[in-house]
Amino acid sequence: MIIRAVRSFFSYVGGVIIILTEGFKNFHRIPKSYRLILNQILSMGISSLPIVVLVSVFAGMVTCFQAAFQTKAYVPELYVGMSVAKAVMIELGPMLTGLVVAGRVSSSIAAELGTMKVTEQIDALEIMGIDPGRYLVMPRIFSGIITLPILTILAEIIMILGGLFVSVYGLDISPYIYLRGVRTNFIQIELWGGLIKSVVFGLIIGLMGCYHGFQSKGGAEGVGQATTRAVVSAMVLILIFDYFIARVVFA
């Protein structure tokens, strides 16, 4: 049993590496495939936008509320804004956006490619001399890498505004104090560190969607399983990489 588990682990890793290579080795053809990429970026970005906005508003609000509540009477009001800004830039922004988009986009990529696989559409591409690595994998991975940082920046702005809303209407902190707090003790690496995370998360989302889509077997059931696996594995990998990137960037 252990041997089987080890073997399936390595075949998983091998499969993921193959898909990753398929994506990366076609990166030099980005200019020629700009239309495919633009389509992907738009569909990823637009489909995730409402849920990212919604989650961000509430995440920002609760962060602000907790920052104030937990430190009440111990720390000056100025530090409420600072806590929100730091929490959002370092962790909450990239992480929550990553998880939400993983749920939204990994699943749809896996479902789309899985359906194409089981209905022989990917074979059809191959026969027409069109490399699925360039036509399907590369645009999705590249769009993940582009889209996620953009969504993350947007999410961070919305979270900070959500915090502003709570501090003004719930905590009686003036907007001036809150916003000065946001700027207090700002360290650039915290912003860039978070954005580096989001780039990696974008890669993970595209990669897991593509890998599990291509692994689909059978019919509707196989596609369903692939979809679930794509989401679960993307989320788990995001959490794992979140830790390791934090260790590297903030060491």
């Binding site: 359906t115 209905t119 022989e120 059809a124 026969i127």
Partner: peptide, 10 residues
């Protein structure tokens, strides 16, 4: 190649 299921891109 003509596929059994036609395999048109939907």
């Amino acid at each position: 190649m003509v596929f059994q299921s036609s395999a048109l891109f939907d």
